[in-house]
Amino acid sequence: MHIREVLAQNLRRLRRDRCLSQEELAHRAEIDRTYVSALERGVYSASVDVVDKLAQALGIEASDLLRASRRKTGD
């Protein structure tokens, strides 16, 4: 999975886990709501500064937004 897709999935999941709208997250991160939407759809790549703003708004480490989930395999 590409890093843009990882960010998109993590951003959407973490935002929803916190019951935040895209608008509220954008407000907290001081970015535009349409940009949050585009990031969640994987349309744009985020700069490290934007990743940091989003992480702070979500109360997490920036690396959490970029960490690919590990799927268990049937061993």
Rank of each mutant, 00 (worst) to 15 (best):
R12Q: 08
L7W: 05
A55N: 03
T73Q: 11
H2E: 09
V51Q: 05
C19H: 13
R71D: 04
S63H: 11
G42T: 02
V43W: 05
Q22S: 12
K53L: 04
T73W: 09
R16D: 03
D75Y: 09
R18W: 02
Y35H: 13
T73A: 12
R67G: 04
C19I: 04
V36M: 00
G59V: 04
G42Q: 03
I31G: 03
A55D: 03
S37A: 15
S63A: 14
N10M: 08
R15E: 07
A68Y: 09
Q56H: 13
K72Q: 10
L39Y: 00
A68P: 15
A29E: 01
V43F: 05
R15L: 10
H2N: 08
L25T: 04
A29N: 06
L20Q: 08
C19R: 14
L20G: 10
V36G: 01
R70S: 14
Q22A: 13
A46L: 08
I3N: 03
T34Y: 04
D75V: 03
D64E: 15
D75M: 07
R41S: 06
G74S: 12
M1N: 13
Q9P: 00
A8C: 13
R67A: 15
R18Y: 03
A26G: 14
Q22G: 15
L66R: 06
A62D: 11
I3M: 11
T34P: 10
R15D: 05
E30Q: 14
A38R: 07
S45T: 12
K72A: 06
R18Q: 15
D32Q: 02
A62P: 15
S63L: 07
D32V: 00
D17S: 13
S47Q: 06
S69K: 15
S21Y: 01
T34F: 06
R70P: 08
E23S: 11
R15F: 08
E61H: 12
G42V: 02
I3H: 12
T73K: 13
G42A: 02
H2I: 02
L14M: 14
V48P: 02
L20V: 10
E23G: 07
L11E: 02
R28A: 01
I60A: 10
L58K: 11
L7M: 09
A8L: 13
D75T: 05
D17A: 13
E24C: 05
I60L: 15
E24Q: 14
R41E: 02
S37P: 02
E24N: 08
L25C: 10
R71W: 00
G42S: 03
